[in-house]
Amino acid sequence: MERLAYKGVASNLVTYLTEVVEMSTSVAAKSVSTWSGVTSMLPLLTAVLTDSYGDRYSTITASSLFYVVVPHAK
């Protein structure tokens, strides 16, 4: 499901940025490329930190709380 959501967001993000946010096409494409790169590399970077300083259960708990709390914070 996560991959399906990612592909759905990625395919519509340039359209959203150009039509709703009114970015130029080149800036919107650059933003989507940056977003795609960050979302692809972030698991590799956080995996090193988690394996070095955390254990399995505290990592699952922290990421679950982050997933629930952060999208609803304003």
Rank of each mutant, 00 (worst) to 15 (best):
M1N: 09
E2S: 13
E2R: 05
E2L: 11
R3C: 09
R3E: 14
R3Q: 15
R3M: 12
L4C: 07
L4H: 10
L4N: 10
L4Q: 09
A5V: 13
A5M: 06
Y6I: 12
Y6T: 06
Y6E: 11
K7S: 04
A10F: 06
A10P: 00
A10M: 09
S11C: 02
S11N: 14
S11E: 14
L13Y: 10
V14F: 11
V14D: 11
T15K: 13
T15P: 01
Y16F: 12
Y16H: 08
Y16C: 10
L17K: 08
L17F: 14
T18E: 11
E19N: 13
E19C: 04
V20L: 06
V20K: 15
V20N: 13
V21G: 04
V21H: 11
E22A: 07
E22K: 13
E22T: 15
E22F: 10
E22I: 12
M23K: 03
M23A: 03
S24E: 04
S24L: 08
T25L: 03
T25F: 10
S26A: 07
S26H: 06
S26L: 05
S26E: 06
S26D: 08
S26Q: 05
S26N: 05
V27K: 09
A28D: 02
A28W: 12
A29P: 00
A29L: 01
K30C: 03
K30G: 02
S31M: 06
S31V: 06
S31G: 05
S31P: 01
V32I: 10
T34S: 06
T34K: 13
W35P: 00
W35L: 09
S36R: 09
S36P: 01
G37Y: 10
G37V: 03
G37M: 03
V38P: 03
V38W: 08
V38K: 07
V38E: 05
V38H: 06
V38T: 09
T39Y: 05
M41E: 08
M41I: 04
M41C: 07
M41P: 00
L42V: 05
L42H: 01
P43F: 14
P43Q: 15
P43K: 10
P43D: 15
P43M: 14
L44F: 14
L44D: 10
L44R: 03
L45T: 03
L45R: 07
L45E: 03
T46D: 02
A47V: 01
V48R: 02
T50M: 09
T50V: 11
T50F: 05
S52W: 01
Y53D: 13
Y53E: 15
D55G: 14
D55K: 12
D55P: 05
R56T: 10
Y57H: 14
Y57M: 08
Y57V: 08
S58L: 11
S58K: 11
T59W: 10
T59H: 12
T59Q: 12
I60E: 15
T61Y: 02
A62V: 08
S63A: 15
S64E: 09
S64P: 01
L65K: 08
L65T: 12
L65I: 14
F66R: 05
Y67P: 01
V68Q: 03
V68K: 03
V68G: 01
V68N: 04
V68D: 04
V69M: 08
V69W: 04
V69H: 05
V70F: 04
V70D: 01
V70Y: 01
P71D: 00
P71T: 00
P71Y: 00
P71A: 00
H72R: 04
H72G: 07
H72P: 03
A73F: 12
K74H: 14
